[in-house]
Every structure is written in C-alpha cells, then in structure tokens.
Simulated scan of single mutants.
Amino acid sequence: MGERVKNQKTTEEIALGIRRRVFEHSMRNNGGYLSQACSAAEQLAWLYNEALNLGEPTMPMIPPPFGGVPAPGNDDYVTGAGYNGPFEPQYDRLFIAPAHYALVAYATLIETGRMAAEGLEMFNKDGSSVEMIGAEHSPGMEVHNGTLGIGLSTGAGLAYGRRLRGEPGEVCVFMSDGEVQEGQTWEAIQACAHHGIDNVWAIMDVNDQQCDGAMSSVMEVRDIATKMRAFGATVVEIDAHDLDAMRQAKKEPHEGQPLIILAHSSPTHGMSFLQKRFPRLHYVRFKSEQERDEMNVSIAKELGIDPVQFDTH
C-alpha cells in the first residue's frame, strides 16, 4: 500500500473523484467540509492536473506523523509542500490560502496520485500531520496561513524573490472570497501592481459563503472585480464549474500586474441536498441519523455511487 501511481485521469474525473471522496469521508465521520468540495473541486483538479508545473512529489505517499515545529535540534522538520513537488527554479509553487479547505486539498492529492488514500484516514487524528485545518506540515501546504487573508501576500513575496533570482517558475495562490474582507489582501494586490510582480496569479473560489453564513450577512463586499482592478490587478470572472472558461482565463495577458481569476461557484454543486442547509454550509454536521441517512442516499445517487456503509450504533 502507498505505492505511487501516475495519474492518468481527466480533470473532470478528478473533480468528481474529489467530491466523492469528501462525501464518503464526511458520511463516515459524522460531518465534513462538503460545500467546499462542491464549489472548489474543478478549481483544485485543474490546478493540479493542468495549470501548474509542479514536478514529482518528494514526500512519502503515506504522510508521516507530526514532526514538531521548526526549532533548534529539530533537523528533520519538513513542510507539506513536498507533495506539490521539489523546490526547484523551473517548477511552480502553490499556496492554499483557506486552510479550512484542507479536506478537499487532501482528496485532490489522492485523486492526482500524490498521496495515498490511507492519508485521509489520518485526518484530524492526534499526532497526525493531516490536520483538519491545514498547517505548514500538512500535505500540500507550504506555510501556515494563520489569520485568513495572508495567502496572497505570502505568494506575492515569494514571487518577488523568484523574479529577483531569475527563476522561471510562477507562484499560484488558491483563495476564497472571504479573504477580501481582510485589508492585507488589498495591500498585496497594490504591492504587486506597484512592483510589477506579474509572476504571481490567483484563483478565488467565490461561493459567497463563510464560517458564519452568507458573505453578505457577515460583511458586504460589493463588486470585488471592480475593486481589484482599481487596486491594480488584471481580473477575469468565470463560472467555476466551467473548465474551458478556466483554461481560457489563465491565458489573459497581465504584464506588470497580478492575474486574479474570480471563479463564481455553487456551494451545493453536485450535492443538491445541501440546499436544505443553506446558508449555513461551512461545516456540515448531521442533525439526526434520519438526516444522515437521507443525505447519504440522495447525494450518493447524484454522484453516481452506492450509498456509504457505516455503523449506526
């Protein structure tokens, strides 16, 4: 078990596999980040399978246990970035800014042959590096994003350094729309524009949802695209479930500016049953065994799989 298998799936197949894997995990563990799989599956599948040049993973297929924080004497400390490939100049780098998408990110690593399925069984377990909220040692994570909103700044800083060193690899940041409620996101955009940092680009999952409910109920952000352009970004708006639109958006010229793709998504795409829970979709726990059974049957049918078998006692 744990032997690396070269991915030969289409991006569409990977996106479906991500939703199925997150759904099955959530059914068996009495809850999970279902809406993030609904909204972001195509985006993460596309990033790993098409858009990024990441290189072969350098970490073991079965994630090692948590090795402690960086400190004198902890020479074996590693980040989870090795699942995205080596730190070499020609390869792209990926930052996953919303760490609560970790379950979806782990499912993506499995579907693309970068992590073993056993890794998901370690999710949120004591001593595991497969954290519920992805940390810098978690598979696919390079840094701990701490307060939501620092991801674009992190990516911009690395991209600036790579440009100064003449490295050809780009830097990509996967974001969520809740981050535009943080001032640091806007500072990052204007810093990129001011310094001409155009080897960084981002795709933002615009699902209008966050921890406390709908975006508008927490803080109204109005027209994100217009504001980003005013701060100096090149912006393309697309349907997040349209892969051809995603592919075309990445080709948008953005000399001297960061490119930001606003991917408008549905937090119930592929799992229509979740509409009954709208707008509280951030982390879905079952209200009763009856609801769990109904959700299991309904969503499994929509995803084209058998209902999940689990012990109800």
Rank of each mutant, 00 (worst) to 15 (best):
Met1Asp: 04
Glu3Met: 03
Arg4Ala: 04
Lys6Trp: 14
Lys9Met: 12
Glu13Asp: 14
Ile14Ala: 14
Leu16Arg: 11
Asn30Phe: 05
Tyr33Asn: 05
Ser39Glu: 00
Ala41Phe: 07
Gln43Ser: 14
Tyr48His: 15
Glu50Tyr: 07
Gly55Ser: 10
Pro57Asn: 07
Met61Asn: 03
Met61Asp: 01
Asn74Ala: 13
Val78Asn: 05
Pro89Phe: 12
Pro89Thr: 05
Arg93Phe: 10
Arg93Trp: 10
Pro98Ala: 01
Leu103Phe: 05
Ala105Lys: 08
Tyr106Val: 00
Glu118Ile: 06
Glu118Ala: 11
Glu121Met: 07
Phe123Met: 14
Phe123Glu: 13
Asp126Leu: 15
Asp126Cys: 13
Gly127Pro: 15
Gly127Tyr: 15
Val130Phe: 10
Glu131Ala: 14
Ile133Arg: 10
Gly134His: 05
Glu136His: 15
Met141Asn: 15
Asn145Ser: 09
Leu148Thr: 07
Leu148Met: 12
Gly149Thr: 12
Ile150Gly: 02
Gly157Val: 15
Leu158Thr: 02
Arg162Tyr: 09
Asp177Ile: 06
Val180Asp: 05
Gly183Leu: 13
His194Glu: 09
Gly196Arg: 04
Trp201Asn: 10
Ile203Asp: 07
Met204Ser: 06
Val206Leu: 09
Gly213Thr: 05
Ala214Lys: 13
Met215Ile: 12
Met219Ser: 06
Arg222Asn: 15
Arg222Glu: 15
Ala225Asn: 13
Thr226Ile: 07
Ala233Ser: 09
Ala233Glu: 08
Ala233Ile: 04
Glu237Leu: 05
Asp239Cys: 12
Asp242Thr: 13
Ala245Met: 13
Gln248Cys: 04
Gln248Leu: 10
Ala249Leu: 11
Lys250Met: 06
Pro258Met: 04
Pro267Leu: 09
Lys276Trp: 01
Arg280Thr: 01
Ser288Lys: 05
Ser288Gly: 06
Gln290Tyr: 03
Asp293Gly: 05
Asp293Trp: 06
Asn296Thr: 02
Ser298Leu: 08
Ile299Pro: 00
Glu302Pro: 09
Val308Met: 01
Phe310Ala: 02
His313Ser: 10
